[in-house]
Design a protein around this nucleic acid. Structure first.
Lengths: 199, 199
DNA sequence: GTCTATACTTAGATAGAC
DNA sequence: GTCTATCTAAGTATAGAC
């Protein structure tokens, strides 16, 4: 969780902001609301963050750092691709955050998904944290598996679009009335991967 | 297009609003910007719409009316399902708006996708215009096809999730750097439908 | 580091002339 | 129906005491 120390003021502000942003959207949330929810005076927020925009920026930075830590090792996966069943390798390529940070990180993703294309910071965030990881891990894995003759040739680009679009929706709609349960997320991924036929 | 008459003031306001909302998001756009873009005085907008929120509401109403006109006839499709190749019937179930209105309608969808879960009006809009049509047409079609023994049994619920999530992303990311070209939309759908194996 | 009070700006909306 | 001028509220941010 942000700042490690659970009760830190900066951490409380970030958690309140993420919660409120994800629920109502960045623009609807006021500094006064963030203050109220984090039980701190509105003026004091400016002791920790120069601006409201900077709170969002800090949330993105935190998420990116966590993602970086959670990313699977591509080289290890490429080696596994030579011996292990293709579907197992692909499911291992999915990264998971620890349950404790999960809700908080989800909220950041929801917020970013909404600001996409209105705010270049958010657009870059989505690119680097949803689109790029899939491109950079699943794509080379599939290419390698085809090369090794371990799976049947397939339209990799289209599969990636479906996969990434699914992930984007899952992120954007998480905790909304249209959101999936976490278990369903896993089984949906398996369904998409079932396009990939082992030799 | 709104109000049919292309040059109508009300129509100009709606088109400007949809364009700006889709680009920057509802909250970032000011009445003054809408006025400037539609080449009308800001105060005059209030002659046509009681409030900014009402402009959005009117956009949603317009979209829903157009969708209703474009929806395919389920009963006709169910009859086709008895005789025609399953994939062809499914592709026919996709509705298309005329090219003229397309961009405008896309912008409304983008706007709504962003406001989802922050604004109940927008949430209902997405439910009725993205989720419901798929549920109400593709689902009974697939069920009927299985019943008729024309396709192999499959996990219909999961397929619908993938399909609807794809459609949501395609709508939300349209005209963004992550958006697909219209041709790709068709081929992606075919890819998803290729999960469905004819008998 | 935290507070009270307040400055400054923006944006939705209205009044009322033409 | 369209305009100019203006009101009002809300929201970001700062000053400065403690």
């Amino acid at each position: 969780m942000p700042e490690k120390r659970y009760g830190s003021t900066r951490g409380k502000i970030l958690r309140a902001a993420a919660k409120l942003f994800s629920k109502s959207g960045y623009h609807r949330v006021t500094m006064r609301e963030i203050a109220q929810d984090s039980e701190i005076n509105a003026a004091s927020i400016y002791h920790y963050f120069p601006s409201k925009a900077d709170i969002l920026k800090s949330l993105y930075a935190f998420y990116s750092a966590e993602l970086h830590k959670a990313l699977p090792d591509l080289h290890a996966l490429l080696r596994l691709a030579e011996t292990d069943p293709p579907h197992e390798v692909l499911m291992k390529a999915e990264f998971h955050f620890d349950q404790e940070a999960r809700d908080f990180l989800d909220q950041i993703l929801i917020t970013a998904a909404r600001e996409i294309s209105a705010d270049s910071e958010s657009e870059r965030f989505i690119r680097e944290n949803i689109f790029a990881p899939t491109e950079n891990i699943i794509k080379p894995l599939l290419q390698r598996m085809v090369e090794l003759g371990r799976i049947q040739p397939l339209d990799i680009e289209t599969l990636l679009t479906i996969l990434v679009y699914y992930c984007f929706s899952a992120a954007a709609l998480n905790h909304s009335p249209f959101g999936n349960k976490p278990e369903k997320y896993q089984s949906d991924l398996s369904f998409i991967f079932s396009f990939i036929k082992p030799m």
